[in-house]
Design a protein around this nucleic acid. Structure first.
Length: 767
RNA sequence: GCGCGAUUAGCUCAGUUGGUAGAGCAACUCUUUUACACAGAGAAGGUCGCAGGUUCAAGUCCUGCAUCGCGCACCA
């Protein structure tokens, strides 16, 4: 009884994630099994399975949402690897253009009181790059801590050299297809960030506003309503609904007035975009400061006058207005209206104010010359594997996006998001891709006499040939006098290429002819796992880009996870001070516990609530597995329970001499294997996690281990052997089943039991 | 305005094709028995948001409503 234990000493203490995890991770890394080229033969012969990591923004650190993403994707990859697939998981980070630049700009302004233009393009970029590098290192460390079995040798960055080549190639190709064009229209201008943004980067905020009803002058008989009277200095028309009886007699009439110091000329037009019931039923049309009005102006051939500049200041009006910020000008216009006796009504209403997602600036619609992707432009898709779109047929980007999902070439989990996706496509307008910021991919376009072109605001829509020479190319043009477009591309333009730019596209001549490369092996990727909040920003754009440039879908399955909220269901935020940091949880309870807490109790597409207690609970589970192992290993070693000398027993996978009790237990275990294998294939990870938890704790530990005590201390050697073989079998199987969920503790135990192989490449159990 | 989701035990959630309500956590009682007190045994806890309907049978299907949350559009 006093002889030293035959099992490793560490099992005599509780499981300690802190002294285990880093050691195990480097063991995996050294094995090379994260890389599909270094997998065992079984996997190399296997079917490819690939996931690209949604690249985290290099704006700081990872949060619980990222942790959930990493846990889910690692579960898929580990499961498939065990199933014998040739698995590839590509890591990377996203430069996140606007988000990163504005973050660094804020820091610089706070610390040094300097602005972007005080530093200049080169110096600012130096600062942003340094910040991005630091963020990157932090992020990579966090990804490792989570236990992600990701192929670091293939790490990419949306702004690195190869990705830049992909961006230039994509731009040039789409330009040649007529899908990218330069045009002047009313775009979303962010006066705070000093750049345009796309429709999707707008966040609407409900605010109280006043709706003013007034006439432009005493001589104009129609009253209009607006929340922004200051824009009315740029009005070109009064629009009424063609069916409305009220203003029929005025349609076609034209009026002149001096409005708050500015001469205006308005024509009464009929347009169905006007709602009869709103306000007075008549709408003042401001072509330069509203995209709806811009559209109307196009239809009715109205002139356009810009009255607000890039800093949201008035450029015209009387002395109380000109040069003032729009909010001050608004008050001044209202004063003027009152003084003139033109104001008829002032009402409080709720208004959705458009703000910029990243800077919070209030969007000012302004006419600008920008680059766009035409989503409704017909073009010939040379090569296509998308069902319903034949190679060489005429199609549009909208059609590609629609067809890719409608045809089931891509399935979205949960499927209700397919409707959300279709709804978005229906309302989609041309995508403004140029940004007036410095951090990002420079637009691969060069001009001669660029200064003329920049100041030009043409109504025709596209840059006119002859006024200036435009060169679009992958490389800079040869010759004198060319200057490159100052603007950069929307960050989502480069992330849209992510599923194939990370796999070597565009391929060099050698790569496309020789042996299979990453692109031919792993594209389309198998699964895209991401948050439902970026379905438009990213998922849709990837489908658009891939369909257009490659003629394929980027992935076969989209698995959407929800937001991670705090225990009370609130969004985690600094101001609420309710952020749960993944690294803290890992340090306190281990990565396995953290992972499990993010999986169990939440289905795809649903937000999840996370509390520290939940993580703690799964830490106890890690320790439970640890102690189950201790019990089984000592039993097999012949320690305790026996009054006589009993031989040590080693696991025999081919063991057949089962007692009847064991046969019943084997059936339960086999049923479990069949069940969870099916659910793994159906992406029901939350169910699998819960079932395995339940089996290991309440079946294996509470029932089987308990009843083993009498068998093990009994005299029936045959029954004892049968029981120990089953305990070893059940433990071995359980470790393999739950490994994708809890990789560290399972690998650590596996190393004690089967020190010749790594659990990471063991076979998934078969029933 | 259009659409989506949620509403089940104190809390977080399961509940697959309709067949007498489940799990985890918390709380309660007992047990420090040699795998584990980061534990075990046990008991308790729900008119499944409301109102109708279909059915032998409804948490599950249908209709309407309510509350909360979200998305899209409008927002002159």
């Amino acid at each position: 009884m006093n002889e030293p234990s035959k099992i490793p000493a560490k099992f005599l203490k509780p499981y300690d994630p802190a002294s285990t995890e880093d050691r195990i991770y480097s063991l995996w890394e050294k094995s090379g099994f994260f890389n599909p080229d270094h997998l065992p033969e079984r996997n190399k012969q296997g079917e490819p399975f690939s996931i690209v990591l949604p690249p985290p923004n290099v704006t700081g650190t990872l949060h619980m949402g990222h942790a959930a993403m990493l846990a889910i994707e690692d579960i898929m990859i580990r499961y498939k690897r065990m199933k014998g697939y040739r698995t590839l998981w590509v890591p990377g980070t996203d430069h996140a253009a606007i988000a990163t630049q504005s973050k660094v700009e804020k820091q610089i302004e706070k610390a040094e009181g300097k602005r972007r233009h005080d530093l200049g393009r080169e110096e600012l970029l130096k600062r942003v790059n340094a910040f991005a590098q630091e963020s990157h290192d932090t992020i990579v460390n966090q990804v490792r801590k989570m236990g992600a079995s990701i192929d670091w040798s293939r790490e990419a960055f949306t702004l690195d050299q190869h990705r830049n080549l992909a961006v230039r190639t994509a731009f040039k190709t789409m330009y040649d297809l007529g899908l990218i064009y330069r045009g002047s229209k009313v775009v979303n201008w962010d006066p705070k960030g000093q750049t345009t943004i796309s429709d999707d980067e707008i966040v609407y905020e409900t605010r109280k506003a006043k709706l003013y009803t007034f006439k432009y002058s005493k001589d104009i008989p129609i009253s209009i309503s607006t929340t922004r009277p200051e824009t009315k200095l740029g009005d070109a028309a009064i629009a009424v609904h063609p069916d409305g009886p009220r203003y029929q007699s005025y349609i076609g009439k034209e009026f002149d007035a001096v409005f708050a110091g500015e001469a205006i000329h308005v024509k009464v037009i009929a347009d169905t975009a006007v709602e009869k019931e709103f306000g007075t039923g008549a709408l003042g049309v401001t072509p330069a400061h509203s995209s709806i009005d811009w559209d109307m102006a196009q239809r009715h051939n109205l002139p356009m006058k810009q009255v607000i500049d890039e800093f949201a200041r008035m450029t015209v009006g009387n002395e109380a207005i000109k040069g003032k910020k729009v909010t001050e000008a608004r008050a001044a216009v209202v004063e003027w209206l009152k003084a003139e006796g033109l104001l008829e009504k002032e009402e409080d209403i709720d208004q959705n104010v458009a703000t910029a997602e990243r800077t919070g600036g209030i969007i000012e619609p302004l006419p600008k010359l920008q680059w766009f992707v035409g989503v409704n432009t017909p073009f010939v898709l040379a090569h296509s594997t998308i069902p319903g779109i034949a190679s060489g047929s005429k199609t549009t980007l909208k059609e590609i996006m629609l067809q890719s999902v409608k045809s089931r070439a891509i399935t979205i989990i949960p499927d209700r998001f397919e409707r959300v996706y279709f709804n978005w496509i229906e309302n989609l307008r041309d995508w403004c891709i140029s940004r007036q910021i410095w951090y990002g991919h420079r637009i691969p376009v060069w001009y001669k006499e660029i200064s003329n072109l920049k100041s030009e605001i043409s109504k025709s829509g596209t840059a006119t040939a002859g006024e200036s020479e435009v060169y679009v190319g992958i490389e800079a043009p040869i010759g004198e006098g060319w200057s490159q477009d100052e603007d950069t591309l929307d960050t989502w333009f480069s992330s849209g290429l992510w599923t194939f730019s990370t796999l070597g596209w565009p391929r060099s001549a050698e790569a496309s002819q020789g042996k299979p490369d990453d692109f031919s092996l792993f594209h389309p990727t198998s699964v895209l796992e991401t948050g439902y909040d970026i379905i438009f920003f990213w998922v849709a754009r990837m489908i658009l880009m891939t369909g257009c440039l490659i003629g394929e879908v980027p992935f076969k399955t989209v698995y959407l996870h929800g937001l991670v909220r705090d225990g009370k269901g609130r969004k985690m935020s600094k101001s609420l001070d309710n952020i749960i940091d993944p690294l803290d949880m890992i340090a306190k309870y281990g990565a396995d516990a953290t992972r499990l807490s993010l999986i169990i109790g939440t289905g795809p597409g649903n937000d999840m609530k996370l509390s520290e207690d939940k993580v703690k609970g799964y830490k106890n589970f890690s320790n439970k597995i640890w102690n189950i192992t201790r019990f089984i290993l000592s039993a097999a070693a012949g320690e305790r329970f026996g009054s006589t000398d009993v031989p040590a027993i080693t696991y025999d996978p081919a063991f057949k001499a089962w007692s009847s009790v064991e046969l019943a237990h084997i059936k339960v275990l086999n049923d479990l294997i069949a069940e969870v294998s099916k659910e793994m294939d159906e992406f029901k990870f939350y169910l699998v996690g819960e079932k395995l938890y339940h089996y290991i704790w309440h079946e294996l530990a509470d029932k089987i281990l308990e009843e083993s005590k009498s068998i093990l201390s009994g005299d029936d050697l045959q029954a004892r052997t049968s029981r120990i073989q089953f305990l070893l079998h059940s433990l071995n199987t359980s470790l393999r089943l739950i490994h994708p969920f809890m990789p560290y503790v399972t690998e650590e135990i596996w190393q004690e039991m089967e020190n010749t192989h790594l659990l990471i490449v063991e076979e998934w159990p078969r029933a």
